[in-house]
């Protein structure tokens, strides 16, 4: 089922962030939202995630099961990469499969050390694997590849695309190249 946004508006005090926004996200596709800083990309994602309430407008077709890569990594710092991912999965999900996914995104080395000991780029990739493996019909990604070098970003991007085929995802990015690699032109929206 497509996600339909009609006449969405949102203001923070005097500042109108979104004004009569209407969009439709086709089911099973990767959608990219682009635009300058402060244009309301993250606000739109936060409304779709249910963390903000719109002032006006309607949203239809939002699935119940969602996952996300936030602007910040939002990992449990004291726990390992494997545990961070296992935390959002069903009990009994094979740890070996989690480790396999973490390795597929280029995280080699000790996957059992606390993520507090990881670099920013490593944490980012753990957050991506967590969102991809979580049981979800819709994945939100807010600048998911921020802070990754080109090679690592390409690897993470390939991992994401190959593991989310047929799933609906909404990605916020500033990077044109990233946007083109992620989505077909008709699925790129400029706010």
């Amino acid at each position: 089922m497509n996600i339909k946004i009609r006449n969405l508006s949102k203001a923070f005090g005097e500042k109108q962030v979104l004004q009569n926004l209407s969009l439709e996200f086709a089911s099973g596709k990767c959608h990219v939202i682009m635009g300058p800083s402060g244009c309301g990309k993250t606000t739109l994602l936060r409304i779709l995630m249910g963390f903000e309430k719109q002032d006006a407008g309607t949203i239809e077709g939002l699935p119940v099961h969602k996952s996300a890569v936030f602007q910040e990594d939002r990992l449990c710092e004291d726990f390992s990469a494997v545990e961070n991912v296992a935390m959002v999965l069903k009990k009994g999900f094979p740890r070996s499969e989690i480790a396999e996914n973490l390795r597929a995104i280029g995280l080699d080395g000790d996957l059992n050390q606390p993520v507090s000991e990881y670099s920013g780029g490593m944490k980012r990739r753990v957050a991506i694997v967590r969102a991809v493996l979580a049981e979800a019909d819709l994945i939100f990604l807010d600048e998911p590849f921020k802070g990754l070098d080109t090679d690592t970003r390409d690897l993470a991007l390939q991992y994401f695309l190959s593991h989310t085929k047929g799933k609906t995802s909404i990605v916020v990015t500033h990077d044109e190249k990233e946007a083109r690699m992620l989505a077909a032109a008709e699925h790129i929206t400029h706010l």
Binding site: M49, G50, F51, H65, K66, S67, A68, F70, E72, R74, C76, M87, V88, R130, A134, F140
Partner: peptide
């Protein structure tokens, strides 16, 4: 708050 939101979107169980 950020971790609460994370737990909410991933539907993390109360025990976890």
């Amino acid at each position: 708050r950020e971790m609460k939101e994370m737990a909410q979107i991933f539907r993390v169980s109360p025990f976890r």
